[in-house]
Amino acid sequence: MPKLLVKSEKGTGRVSHVTPASAGWTYVGFDLHRMKPGEAVSAATGDREVCLVLVTGKGRAKAGTEDFGLLGERMSPFEGKPWSVYVPQGSDWSVTAETGLELAVCSAPGLDGGLAARVIAPDQLGREVRGKGANTRYVTNILPENEPADSLLVVEVITPGGHTSSYPPHKHDRDDLPRESYLEETYYHRLNPPQGFAFQRVYTDDRSLDETMAVEDGDVVLVPKGYHPCAACHGYDLYYLNVMAGPKRTWKFYNAPEHEWLLKA
Rank of each mutant, 00 (worst) to 15 (best):
A63S: 13
E102I: 12
P2C: 06
S42H: 14
P168F: 05
L153G: 01
L71S: 00
I158E: 03
Y203M: 11
L262Y: 09
Y254M: 09
P194L: 02
C233R: 12
G162S: 07
V139Y: 03
H234Y: 13
A63P: 08
S181Y: 02
L152R: 03
R249K: 15
V55R: 11
T65Q: 15
V119A: 08
D237M: 00
V215F: 04
M244Y: 00
D205Y: 00
G110C: 05
G69V: 07
A23Q: 07
N242L: 14
L153M: 13
Q195E: 15
P160D: 09
L153C: 01
D206I: 02
T12D: 13
Y227P: 00
G64R: 04
V105I: 15
V220M: 09
K225P: 08
P109N: 10
E258T: 08
Y239V: 05
I120D: 02
K248Q: 12
R60G: 05
V28P: 02
A121T: 00
P37A: 03
Y188V: 14
L125R: 01
E128M: 09
P168A: 02
Y187A: 12
R137S: 04
K81H: 06
Q200I: 00
T45Q: 05
S208F: 09
Q200M: 13
V87R: 02
M213I: 14
T159M: 04
L52G: 07
E39T: 01
R48M: 07
E79W: 06
E180P: 00
P20D: 00
V223N: 10
N146W: 15
Y182F: 11
N255L: 10
G57E: 14
G126Q: 12
D176C: 11
M1P: 09
E258I: 07
V157P: 03
T164D: 10
P77V: 15
H172T: 06
T212D: 01
R207A: 12
S107N: 04
H17C: 06
V223A: 04
M244F: 04
A108S: 10
D176N: 14
P77A: 06
P109T: 11
L54F: 10
F199P: 01
P193V: 11
